[in-house]
Design a protein around this nucleic acid. Structure first.
Lengths: 109, 109
DNA sequence: TTGCTCCTCACGTCACGTGAGGTGGC
DNA sequence: TTGCTCCTCACGTCACGTGAGGTGGC
C-alpha cells in the first residue's frame, strides 16, 4: 500500500501541517507509521477521515463535536446533520438580511 | 442627560459585560463616567457606537478592523463594506452548496 | 453578618499561526 | 559545512467565558 507523507496529506486537503497536528491533538487522526527518518506517514483511511473532519468543520461543528460524531451510529449522525442544516439555513437568512441592509446603507453613503 | 449603567447597555445590546470589556480593551469604547460607587456609566453616543461595533462584527470584521473603520472617512467605509458584501455573498453560496450536499447525504443514510 | 451586585484582574478556550531548537539526507 | 525539509514542543492570537478576590449598599 502506498503511504502518504504529511506534506502530501496537507496538499490534498489544502491545510497546513498545524491543522493536521490539531486533529491529532483532538484525537481525531493518527499517523499509521513513520519512515526511517521519523517522517509521519498516513494511509488512504486517514485521508478519508481527515476529509470527513474537514467537511464537518465546514458545517460548523467543533473538533470536540466531530469527535463525538465521526464514529457515532447513523441515527446520531442523522440527527446532528438535520439540526445543523436548520442552523445553516437560519444563518443564510441572517446573512441575506445583513447584505440587504448593507446595500441600503451603501446607497445612502 | 440620562446615563446608562453597564447592565442596561448589556441588556440593550444582548451581550455580556465581558463583551463590553473586550470593546474597551480594543480601544473601541469607553465609559463616560462612574457613579459614586465606581459603577460604570455610558451615554447614548456609547450605545450607538457599541451598536455599530456589533453590526460590523455581524458582517465579519474583527475588532482590529473595526477600530480602523469606525472613525474612518466615508470612502474607506464604503470600500470595506463593498468588499465585505461580496465576501458574504460568496459565503452564502458556499453555505447553499453545503446544505444541498448535506441534504443529499441525509437521503442516502 | 448575610446576600446581592458591581468592580478589576487574569487564566481558560478554540483552532490553528508562528517561531524555536534539533535531526538527517544531499 | 551549507541548505533544505522534517520533527516536536510551546507560546501567541481572537473574542470572549469564567472564576477569583475585593468593595459597598441593604
Amino acid at each position: 500500500m502506498e503511504l502518504l507523507s504529511l506534506k502530501e496529506m496537507c496538499n490534498l486537503l489544502h491545510v497546513t501541517r498545524r491543522t493536521i497536528q490539531g486533529y491529532e491533538q483532538a484525537g481525531l487522526l493518527k499517523d499509521v507509521d513513520k519512515n526511517k527518518y521519523g517522517h509521519l506517514l498516513y494511509d488512504d483511511a486517514c485521508l478519508d477521515r481527515a476529509r470527513k473532519v474537514r467537511y464537518f468543520q465546514e458545517l460548523g461543528f467543533t473538533l470536540g463535536e466531530i469527535k463525538e460524531l465521526i464514529d457515532a451510529p447513523e441515527w446520531v449522525l442523522r440527527e446532528a446533520l438535520e439540526r445543523k442544516v436548520k442552523e445553516l439555513m437560519q444563518e443564510m437568512e441572517h446573512l441575506r438580511l445583513l447584505v440587504e441592509k448593507t446595500e441600503e446603507l451603501l446607497k445612502s453613503l
